[in-house]
């Protein structure tokens, strides 16, 4: 997420409404519906191969402070 205060309208709109459709390895949010457990997956969108799955704490360390949105990992 870009800085929700400092980012330009353009950048914010890009973040909310536009998403890259990359051919290759992407990191995606997955949710196990039965338990509502969220995790991340690296997937190759060309081959549909799941390269690895991992817990969110690998990307998001510790409490994120909203007054400084930059500490939130993208």
């Amino acid at each position: 997420m870009p800085d929700h205060i400092a980012s330009s309208s353009r950048d914010w709109a890009e973040y909310v409404f536009f998403h890259d459709n990359n051919a290759g390895i992407v990191t995606e949010w997955w949710c196990h519906i039965a338990s509502s457990f969220w995790f991340l997956a690296e997937r190759n969108t060309v081959t549909d191969e799941i390269i690895r799955t991992f817990k969110t704490d690998e990307l998001f360390h510790g409490r994120a402070d909203v007054t400084d949105p930059k500490s939130e990992s993208k």
Binding site: S36, W38, F60, H61, R63, V66
Partner: peptide
């Protein structure tokens, strides 16, 4: 309800605030 609950969990997996959420 289910959607809201999932959305809460997704956000807090990023914010990592100190609370438990249960549906």
């Amino acid at each position: 309800a289910d959607r809201v609950y999932q959305s809460m969990l997704k956000w807090n997996s990023q914010w990592r605030l100190d609370l438990d959420i249960s549906n």
